[in-house]
Simulated assay, not measured.
Amino acid sequence: MTNLLDLILEAHGGLQRWREATTIRAHGSMGGLLWTLRGQQGILATADMTVEVQQQRMVYEGFTGPGLRGVFTPDRVAIERRDGEVVAERPSPRDAFAGHGPQTPWDELHVLYFAGYAMWNYLTAPYLLTRPGVVVAELEPWEEPGETLRRLRATFPDAIATHAREQTFYYDAAGLLRRHDYAAEVLGGTPAAHLCEKHETTSGLVFPTHRYVLPIQEDAQVLLEPVLVTIDLTEISIA
């Protein structure tokens, strides 16, 4: 691990605490232009999430209706009843985005795959960066008005469902995540900046609880609009 990654892990609770965690539960809300463009406005206005920390799996309770849940894994997404009866499912869900344009409508299973892998990545970071096959390297610092952010480039293996193989994370002097740049492949590869605020500590782990995604220019400068995605998290608990 790099010295920067050591600092980051310690700032977010420490590697040992992350290794001990099995699930992260959070209540939240997601908004932004993306859902409207895909014909799914409001689908995650209320989101109850359970993330499995040590494997890539997460569940959205109440997904699309009372008594239902959305289950994400990299190889399959499914909407189920609480007794496990399958209402709808899709194997190889990433393949279902092939040929999509910027405003191609999504169905509920598209949403489940995108929001499933995205929130699993967000809620398990920075522990995510220690997983087998992930390669990290520190880049030159990034200058913001009145502040210098350290940057870490991460290259992900195919085994992890994520936005893109290469992503850049920005951290403040305390080692807290402030920005995360990627070009989501399932959205056509347009670069965006995912900004992180309001860090809170829960059971020893630290999470940004207010997040929003904005487009960026070729020089990586952030544009102020449109707001593509918003994420607000509350009631986080760890088991």
Rank of each mutant, 00 (worst) to 15 (best):
P141K: 07
Q103F: 15
Y170A: 15
M30P: 02
L224M: 15
E225P: 00
E225H: 00
T22A: 13
M49Y: 11
G13C: 12
Y182C: 14
P132E: 10
S92Y: 14
V87F: 01
L214V: 11
G62H: 12
L233S: 10
G146D: 08
L4S: 06
E200H: 07
R38F: 11
T23Q: 15
E166H: 07
P93M: 01
V77S: 01
V51G: 02
A45K: 11
R38E: 14
D158Q: 10
F169E: 04
G146K: 00
G133H: 09
L37V: 02
E108S: 08
T124K: 01
P141N: 08
M30D: 10
G116L: 00
A220N: 10
E218W: 03
H110P: 02
E10W: 10
H100W: 08
E61V: 02
G65M: 04
A239P: 11
F169N: 01
G28H: 03
T162F: 09
T230W: 07
A47Y: 03
T73L: 00
A125W: 05
I24P: 06
T209L: 05
I43H: 13
E61C: 05
S203V: 04
K198H: 14
V71T: 00
P145A: 13
T46E: 15
P102G: 13
G84R: 00
D95Y: 08
G99F: 10
L34Q: 13
E235V: 03
